[in-house]
Computed example of a mutant assay.
Amino acid sequence: MERERRAAADAVLLRAGLVALTLTSAVSAYRAAAAGDAGSTAFVAASYSTLLLLFRRLRAYERLPPPAGDADADDERRARLRLEVWALCTLLTVMFAWKVAAAMPSWPVAAAVWAMAALTTAGGCVALFHHRP
């Protein structure tokens, strides 16, 4: 009983988050387009699309059954989904680092932004591919 209530609450939060993401992305894209900034409009559209795809891949990964002791067909799918999740996270990290670094006042600060992005990407690689729970 408690599990079903929690699942229903999680579904409501998920939908609310997706609605908020969609609305804020739409407003950002509208403002950028109204200002004639095609680059920012494309950035908003690309980041929104990438986030939706990331959420879809994460959901597919969550729905896989727990790993069995033997190698099975789900192991191959699990590995592919981990790779897709890492690639999408890396893409988002690079996109946001690009925007943030461009707004930095000096090159050392921009270099620090890129260094943090590289460390985040490397940490994600280690966590997803080299660390087994």
Rank of each mutant, 00 (worst) to 15 (best):
R57N: 03
L64D: 02
A60M: 15
R56Q: 07
F55T: 00
D70I: 06
L54R: 02
R59M: 04
A68Y: 10
Y61R: 05
A42G: 03
R56D: 01
L64G: 03
R63N: 14
A71W: 07
L51W: 15
P67A: 09
S47K: 08
A73E: 13
A46S: 15
F43P: 00
T50K: 03
L54S: 07
L54V: 05
D70A: 09
A71R: 13
F43T: 00
P67T: 01
R59Q: 10
D74M: 05
A68S: 15
A45F: 00
S47D: 11
E62K: 10
T50G: 05
D70L: 12
A42E: 04
G69Y: 14
L53H: 10
T50A: 10
P66M: 11
E62S: 11
Y48S: 13
A45Y: 00
A60H: 13
R56Y: 07
D72G: 09
A60V: 05
A45C: 08
G69C: 13
R59Y: 07
D72L: 07
L51I: 14
L54K: 04
S49E: 08
A42L: 06
R56A: 06
A42V: 01
R59V: 01
F55Q: 03
V44W: 00
L52W: 04
T50D: 07
L64V: 03
Y48N: 07
A60Q: 14
R59L: 06
A68C: 15
F55V: 00
F43W: 06
L51M: 15
L58G: 14
F55S: 01
L58V: 09
V44H: 01
R63L: 13
L53V: 06
A42W: 00
F43V: 01
S47L: 10
G69T: 02
D74T: 09
S47V: 10
A73K: 10
L53C: 12
D70M: 11
A68E: 15
A45N: 03
L58D: 08
R59I: 01
R57S: 05
L52T: 02
P65Q: 04
L52S: 03
A73H: 15
Y48F: 15
R57F: 07
A71V: 09
A46E: 09
L58P: 11
A42K: 01
F55A: 04
D74C: 09
A46T: 02
Y61K: 04
S49I: 02
R59N: 09
S49G: 10
E62G: 09
R56N: 04
A71P: 01
A60R: 07
A46K: 12
L58E: 14
Y61T: 00
T50Q: 09
R56V: 02
A45Q: 02
A46I: 01
F55H: 05
R63A: 15
F43K: 00
R56G: 03
D70V: 11
D74S: 13
P65I: 00
V44T: 04
F55W: 06
G69I: 01
Y48W: 15
P66C: 05
Y48P: 03
S49D: 08
L58R: 14
Y61A: 04
Y61M: 06
L64R: 13
S47I: 08
R63F: 13
R59S: 08
